[in-house]
Nucleic acid binder design. Structure first.
Lengths: 261, 261
DNA sequence: CAGTGGTCTAGACCACACT
DNA sequence: GTGTGGTCTAGACCACTGC
């Protein structure tokens, strides 16, 4: 087996080590970092199975327990998914369970369940240069090419979210407006399937605002109806910002649900 | 040593076990539940040290590794805090790090840091019977006695939050209005110090609203300024709801920050 | 120095899934 | 049955804290 990323000297694996481990960081953290590298470099793609714990242990020249601790943490961070008896898989946003992981808007009537019938209407979808604000949020240069999209999301037919979305074209290989136009589904699933981009985490800034006339019209409310403004930056593996969203949420019929831990 | 909660027969600890473990749930989960019991029964109070891993292992008749896994999970859930070389402690809301764990409002100017200078003005503080809404949220009977409090929080002198708060008197032993009136600090710290009530988690419903004239006046905004409405139920150890809050957050100068993982 | 949590290993066995 | 992750144990050593 090719030891692609030797943490440690090529290494008699079986016997106790008597040479010093370079005590920079714990071994399992180094293993975690190596697995993360393989993820961000695309060695294992979203949805795919990764090598078994014993294989990884052999590959990195450490014990199964050490690999286990590394994988445990990556699973806790939702980067990997363990399935007993089957193996360990690269996490996805496509499964039922994780499909709407970042969507916090709930209906006032059925506060428990996640939205079932979601309808998406594209309002516009075009290439744009980055203005100062978007460039700052996404770590780009002023004027860098973006794909801009505006969509209206309806829950059970009722307008619920008006969402603007900016994607840096340089980070989505082969993305075009046409590609998105007739896609109807969660964006994060598309990113994974078409561009091997997996969103790991996101940060939101939430405010109460009054909508512009155009937004009010689309959301089917008056301009005097307060609206929740949700600005989100989503990050991929290396803490690289990949997407900026500005969502306008109707909270007269819905609410934003947050669990504090 | 008194084995107060024997998971398993009193137990020859040293030799390998050959009797069957009743495979209801993993051993470490049972240990976790026992530790949780000791926490909710007050055997170890907030801030106090709990027995060492080896002591717990002896007490429950399991290996150190099993105790470790149980404690690891409780630490991940912020119920315990591990300190290398010192011991394991019952988590508190009083430490610098965890002081404002549930407060998500950030200044637009200094989005990173947590609020430094917070001033609290009590507006009212009185006993009340529970109405239908509060009773439902806190799992009480209609009419059960509550302590109601309204406070205005200022950040750097500027009004930022107007907060209503309901506490079930039956669950706060010896709580009186007088006790709160001249207290100036985070509520959760007071609950721990005075009533041994530790908040473990909370759930929030967030909406955009227009404020009533009275609220607008106190927050020093017009009644046409949209305000963030944050309804929070906070839970103690046994998922017991202990507190209902209704916060009105100014988001013209601040924003609600949320990290999605 | 002794005592604590933190890391690492090795090996046994269990529970589950696929074939 | 074989192979996977999940649990449990035992023991060695490391890193930190406080006496």
């Amino acid at each position: 087996m090719d030891t692609a990323h030797p943490v440690i000297p090529p290494a008699s694996p079986r016997s106790h080590r008597h040479w010093r481990i370079p005590k920079h960081s714990p071994l399992y953290q180094q293993i975690k970092a190596l697995i993360l590298d393989s993820l961000s470099e695309g060695e294992w793609r979203p949805g795919q199975i990764i090598p078994s714990e014993l294989e990884l242990a052999a590959r990195y020249g450490v014990s199964q327990g050490t690999v286990r601790k590394a994988v445990d943490e990556l699973a806790a961070e939702h980067l990997l998914v363990r399935r007993q008896g089957r193996g360990t898989f690269v996490a996805t946003h496509t499964e039922r369970q994780t499909r709407y992981r970042f969507l916090r808007l709930r209906s006032d009537k059925t506060p428990q369940a996640v939205q079932e019938s979601t309808q998406r209407d594209f309002i516009s979808c075009e290439q744009q240069p980055a203005d100062a604000h978007v460039a700052a949020a996404l770590g780009l240069q002023h004027g860098d090419p973006l794909l801009f999209t505006r969509r209206l999301l309806r829950f059970d037919g009722e307008p619920a979210i008006l969402e603007d979305l900016w994607l840096p074209l340089a980070r989505f290989n082969g993305l075009t407006a046409e590609r998105l136009i007739d896609y109807n589904g969660p964006m994060y699933a598309l990113y994974e399937a078409e561009f091997s981009v997996h969103m790991v985490r996101a940060e939101e800034k939430i405010r109460a605002i009054l909508p512009e006339p155009e937004a009010a019209r689309l959301l089917d409310v008056s301009t005097a109806t307060p609206i929740l403004s949700v600005e989100r930056v989503a990050y991929s593996y290396g803490n690289t910002p990949m997407e900026l969203r500005l969502g306008l949420y109707r909270t007269d019929t819905h609410h934003y649900h947050n669990a504090l831990k």
